[in-house]
Design a protein around this nucleic acid. Structure first.
Length: 276
DNA sequence: CCTTGAACCTGCGGGC
DNA sequence: TGCCCGCAGGTTCAAG
C-alpha cells in the first residue's frame, strides 16, 4: 500500500489517536508477518506509554516510555485501524493493541509483507533495518549535489534507481513515475545521464511527495488512514495506472513498461532522455 | 559495488 | 459459474 505520503498520513492519524496512551495488552493472532514477532513482544509493550509516533523512510516508529521503540512497516497491504472498543476481528487482523481507558488499535495485513519489531530507541539508527537507509527526501540532506553524485555512479535506468532506499527513502513505484513525468525525463534514461538534471529531480520528487501528503496520500485498492479516511491524491496521478489514457499535457497515450519487475508509466512524447 | 530476477503472500479483476 | 493468469503501493536474497 504505502509510499512515504501514505505512511506519513498514517503517522499523523496515529499520533493523534495513540500518543500519550498506555498499552494495556497486546494480542498476536499469529507468530509472524514478513518476519517473526520478536520474543517477549507483547510483554515488552504491556504497560508502556506511547510518547509519540514518528517516521523513518516507510517505517512507523512508536516511541515508548520504556526506552524502546515499536517499529512497524506496512508492506504492501498493511493497515492500522482505531476503535473505541474491541471490534469484531476479521481475516488478517494480526495484532491487536488495547489501551488503558479504552481504545483499540488493530493491524491488518492480508499479504503479510509488513513487519513489527522492537528496537532500543537510543540505538535505533544502528539497527539493521535503518543503518543502510538513504536520506529523507524532504530533508536538506537530499540535495542536488548529493543526488547528482549518486546518479553519476549508477548505470541502470533512473526510475528503479530512484526507488532504491539506499539512495533516498520513501520513493516507491507511484511517486518515482510521477516525479519523472514532472521533470520530463524518460524513465529508461541511464541514471548517470540523468545526473545533470539532479536539481530539478530533487525539486520534482519533493513537490510530488508534498502534494500527496497534502491530499492525505493515495488510495488505490485500499489504503485508509487510522481514522478510516481515504486519501485522494490518486485523482491527480498524471501517469501512474493510466496506461493507454491520454497524457494530460500532450494527449499522447500513456505507456506502461516493466523495469526491475515493476510497472513504470510514462509519456513517450513528454518524457525524453536528456541530451548530454 | 551495481543490477536484475525471484521470492515472500493474498486478493481481485479480466478473459475464456 | 469457475478457473487460470496477471497484477498489486515493498523488501530481501541470490546470482551474474
Amino acid at each position: 500500500m504505502p509510499e512515504l505520503p501514505e505512511v506519513e498520513t498514517v503517522r499523523r492519524g496515529l499520533e493523534r489517536t495513540v500518543k500519550g496512551k498506555t498499552i494495556r495488552a497486546v494480542q498476536l493472532r499469529r507468530a509472524d508477518l514478513r518476519v517473526p514477532f520478536p520474543a517477549g513482544f507483547a510483554e515488552a509493550l504491556s504497560g508502556a506509554t506511547v510518547e509519540g509516533v514518528s517516521r523513518r523512510a516507510k517505517y512507523l516508529l512508536f516511541s515508548l516510555d520504556n526506552g524502546r521503540t515499536l517499529v512497524a512497516h506496512l508492506g504492501m497491504s498493511g493497515r492500522f485501524s482505531t476503535h473505541g472498543e474491541m471490534p469484531g476481528l476479521k481475516a488478517h487482523d494480526h495484532a491487536v493493541f488495547s489501551f488503558e481507558g479504552g481504545g483499540v488499535l488493530v493491524f491488518n495485513d492480508a499479504r503479510r509483507f509488513g513487519l513489527m519489531t522492537l528496537a532500543e530507541t537510543r540505538k535505533i539508527a544502528l539497527h539493521p533495518l535503518f543503518k543502510d537507509l538513504g536520506p529523507e527526501p524532504l530533508s536538506g540532506d537530499f540535495s542536488a549535489a548529493y543526488l547528482k553524485e549518486q546518479l553519476a555512479r549508477r548505470k541502470g535506468p533512473v526510475k528503479p534507481v530512484l526507488m532504491d532506499q539506499k539512495l533516498v527513502v520513501g520513493v516507491g513505484n507511484i511517486y518515482a513515475s510521477e516525479a519523472l513525468f514532472s521533470v520530463g525525463i524518460d524513465p529508461r534514461t541511464p541514471a548517470s545521464k540523468a545526473a545533470a538534471r539532479a536539481g530539478e529531480l530533487v525539486t520534482a520528487i519533493q513537490g510530488v511527495l508534498e502534494a500527496a501528503i497534502a491530499s492525505g496520500g493515495s488510495s488505490l485498492r485500499d489504503f485508509f488512514d487510522a481514522d478510516g479516511a481515504a486519501g485522494y491524491f490518486q485523482h491527480r496521478f498524471r501517469v501512474y495506472g493510466r496506461e493507454e489514457e491520454p497524457c494530460t499535457t500532450c494527449g499522447a497515450p500513456i505507456r506502461r513498461i516493466a523495469q526491475a519487475g515493476r510497472s513504470t508509466f510514462y509519456c513517450a512524447r513528454c518524457q525524453k532522455v536528456p541530451s548530454p
